[in-house]
Amino acid sequence: MNIRFLSLVASTALLATLAMPADAAGPQGQWSGVIQQANTDVRVDATFGAAQVDLRFDEPFACRISASFVTTRDTANVYRFKPSVNGGRFCDDLTSKEFTVKPAPPKAGEPVTWLISFSSKRADWTGRLQQQAP
């Protein structure tokens, strides 16, 4: 084979690898769970894509917001909230703040779980997400 051709193929493969999102090992698809702070539990549904996640917070917040992948720190994927999709004080106050998603320690016989954490204007929130059937 031609050396130039092989060099071109190798370069293309390298560029394709570099263009892959850094969160490739993170959650993908539909996930849901509960976030908590103090005495408040709120259901959250999350749809993870290659470089973005869409979140829907249930009552009492009843709002939707998207976030873009920023980086990976240790085992956590870091996302930054965009402006709220449908308004609502809780989601509006999250704009430009970061949240992290990292794998929970595995437990034998239990499904994969991701830990989510972020700070709102008034509290620190943590929760667990489990994958939903497609």
Rank of each mutant, 00 (worst) to 15 (best):
A10S: 05
T12N: 07
T12I: 09
L14C: 06
L15T: 05
T17H: 12
L18G: 06
A19D: 04
P21T: 01
P21C: 03
A22W: 15
A22N: 14
D23V: 13
A24S: 05
A25G: 08
A25I: 10
G29E: 00
W31P: 00
S32G: 06
S32A: 08
V34E: 06
Q36I: 08
Q37C: 09
N39E: 03
D41P: 05
D41E: 03
V42R: 03
V42W: 03
R43D: 12
R43S: 08
R43V: 11
V44E: 03
V44H: 04
D45H: 14
A46W: 01
A46S: 04
T47G: 11
T47K: 14
T47C: 13
F48Q: 01
G49N: 12
A50N: 15
A50I: 13
V53R: 02
D54C: 13
R56F: 09
R56C: 10
E59M: 08
P60I: 00
F61A: 06
A62Q: 12
R64L: 12
R64C: 05
R64A: 13
I65Y: 05
I65R: 03
I65S: 04
S66N: 04
S66F: 03
A67V: 07
A67Y: 02
A67P: 03
F69A: 09
V70F: 11
T71D: 05
A76V: 01
A76K: 01
N77K: 04
V78I: 00
Y79K: 04
Y79E: 02
R80M: 10
F81N: 04
K82L: 11
K82T: 13
K82C: 10
P83C: 09
N86V: 07
G87F: 07
G88K: 01
F90W: 02
C91H: 01
D92V: 02
D92R: 02
D93E: 13
D93H: 14
T95S: 11
T95E: 09
K97A: 11
K97G: 14
F99G: 04
T100Q: 01
V101C: 05
V101G: 12
P103G: 14
A104G: 11
P106I: 10
K107F: 09
K107C: 15
K107D: 15
A108L: 15
A108E: 14
A108P: 13
G109F: 00
E110D: 09
V112T: 12
V112L: 15
T113C: 14
S117F: 11
S119N: 12
S119Y: 12
K121G: 12
R122G: 15
A123H: 00
A123W: 00
A123K: 02
D124N: 08
D124M: 08
D124A: 07
W125V: 04
W125K: 00
T126R: 04
T126M: 05
T126I: 06
T126A: 02
G127M: 01
G127S: 02
R128D: 15
L129G: 06
Q130M: 15
Q131K: 04
Q131W: 00
Q132Y: 04
